[in-house]
Design a protein around this nucleic acid. Structure first.
Length: 502
RNA sequence: GGGCCGGUAGCUCAGUGGUAGAGCAUCUGACUUUUAAUCAGGUGGUCGCGGGUUCGAUCCCCGCCCGGCUCACCA
């Protein structure tokens, strides 16, 4: 039997000892008077003298993170919501039974404490216990108290353990939640209605990506997990829901990296009678407020950088190529308009694809401060409206920060016949072997045929914004359960079976 | 998919071609304001898996599995 299993058995046996003392090992409801963060927030400003005079009573609950026993007294730290509070238990301050329970506690157990708030000799805010309640048993070894859980594979596979061992993880996901609620609130305040559109679609569109395929048994049809909600949201615009948004998962059957997870969260919003210029302003307002709501400041610390969401630069894609060109032979605006120059500097088939290729190679990583890049070539923008002055370009922009694309927006193409031609261009690309080219979506064309108002629409990658706001280097650090290959045999059911039969 | 790096005790990590190490956790004992508590003593290993080389492999070689970074891919 492994050491780990012996430990497991030892702790399992302790359940019976705890029960023999008269406690319920798996507890019941517990009316705490304060959360641990509330105790810390409420009393951290008080001096030892003030607390001694008042002895404020609290009833708290949490998971045991540390225990220091010293004969007839001891300390432990309880953790709740990622914050820790020290508890002092002395033999002559609690019942004999409670002190016996205290001797039996293991790291990771969950307990409730009644007592009063005080400061120890060294000044740490603590609770002086006068009774203990047992609430739940931990049967497994906990990670090292000083380093926490560092093994990234374990952190992702067993996020529950990561949350137990690493309090900052709780804060990261709390901040992510603030990002989501900030976007949601701001859009609602502007009259946008939140909707939910199909995740399972018989045609996939709205982006260029390979889909996941699934099957519905009763209808006996294959369905795709959506790669984007775009075409459904615009159907709603056609139907007269003039401001809609959706915050939900997209699925793309592609590589995994520090910036890509096969399922990820996208905010998309559409505003009838607006265009991409309106959305530039709206995007800046939204992101600025998100930064404030999530971090308390419009300047956000990210991997040693200070990203200022209070001022967002704007360049056309052509200007960006000129401004951020890596080498000495900086191009002029005439160069980047010249198909021949573009052909020489990129292997791509068309001038538009070449411009994007050059932009991505030269500029993307230089876009550290939040930056809007606008006027995208028509070839790479099958759903965007052409620019009225330059039909090779569309009224489209993307917003970048820390070298990452975080949003994509455009004035929506609402001319059904032009949309038909764009889909046909995509079909031609598909026939040339581009699996990611759009399919023809005739129901979407039909919706456009009823007349869709001029509309601006945008998608923002929520996970990437969460990375920026939480100073996370990898998208997996802002997704609770990122995709990993399944692990092998775990064996815990066997351990339980053996332990309970003893 | 390519390249690089990693997998040793429950956790965090050393290490060696010749009986496998530390700290924490755990167990026993001492200790009524500690806080990476302290002090004394003990338990604990398929060195990721499978082959090969060798008298002998955790170490060297090959293959595989899992993970990280990176490139490609992701308009």
């Amino acid at each position: 039997m492994s050491l780990e299993q012996e430990l497991f058995d030892q702790r399992f046996a302790r359940i019976r000892e705890i029960a023999a003392l008269g406690y319920r090992p798996y507890g019941q409801r517990f009316d705490f008077s304060h959360t641990i963060p509330a105790v810390l927030a409420g009393y951290s400003a008080r001096t030892a003298e003030e607390l001694d005079a008042e002895k404020p009573r609290v009833r708290v609950a949490g998971r045991i993170q540390t225990v220091r026993r010293m004969g007839k007294a001891g300390f432990m730290h309880l953790q709740q919501s990622g914050e820790r509070l020290q508890v002092y238990v002395r033999k002559d301050a609690v019942s004999e039974k409670d002190y016996q329970l205290y001797q039996l506690l293991d790291l990771g157990d969950i307990v409730g404490i009644d007592g009063y708030v005080f400061r120890t000799r060294t000044g740490e805010l603590s609770v002086h216990a006068d009774s203990l309640t047992f609430l739940s048993k931990n049967l497994l070894g906990v990670p090292e108290k000083y380093h926490g859980l560092e093994d990234v594979e374990l952190r992702y596979r067993q996020r529950y353990l990561d949350l137990i061992a690493n309090p900052e993880v709780h804060r990261t996901f709390a901040t992510r939640a603030k990002v989501v609620s900030s976007f949601r609130r701001q859009l609602q305040e502007r009259g946008f209605i939140e909707v939910e559109t199909p995740m399972m679609q018989s045609l996939y569109g709205g982006a260029a990506a390979r889909p996941f395929v699934t099957h519905h048994n009763t209808l006996d049809i294959d369905l795709y997990l959506r790669i984007a909600p775009e075409l459904y949201l615009k159907r709603l615009i056609s139907g007269g829901m003039e401001r809609v948004f959706e915050i939900n998962r997209n699925f793309r059957n592609e590589g995994v990296s520090t910036r890509h997870n096969p399922e990820f969260t996208m905010l998309e919003f559409y505003q009838a009678y607006a265009d991409y210029r309106d959305l530039m302003d709206l995007t800046c307002e939204l992101l600025k407020q998100v930064a404030l709501d999530a971090t308390g400041d419009t300047v956000v610390a990210f991997q040693g950088l200070a990203l200022d969401f209070g001022q967002v630069r704007r360049y056309t894609m052509r200007e960006a190529v000129c401004a951020f060109w890596k080498y000495d032979d900086k191009p002029t605006m005439d160069d980047v308009r010249d198909p021949e120059w573009l052909r020489i500097h990129s292997g791509k088939a068309t001038p538009g694809e070449a411009l994007v290729d050059i932009f991505e190679r030269h500029c993307e990583e230089a876009l550290v401060q939040p930056t809007i890049i606008y006027e995208y070539p028509v070839e790479v923008s099958p759903l965007a409206k052409q620019n009225s002055d330059d039909p090779t370009m569309t009224d489209r922009f993307e917003i970048y920060a820390a070298g990452m694309e975080i949003g994509n927006a455009f004035t929506e193409l609402n001319d059904p016949d032009e949309q038909r031609r764009r889909f046909e261009m995509q079909l031609a690309m598909r026939e040339r072997g581009d699996e990611e080219a759009h399919q023809m979506d005739e129901d979407y064309l039909r919706a456009l045929c009823y007349g869709m108002p001029p509309t601006g629409g945008e998608g923002i990658g929520i996970d990437r914004v969460a990375m920026l706001m939480t100073d996370s280097k990898s998208i997996r650090d802002v997704i609770l359960f990122p995709l990993l290959r399944p692990e092998g045999e775990i064996g815990i059911a066997g351990w339980l079976r053996e332990a309970s039969s003893k």
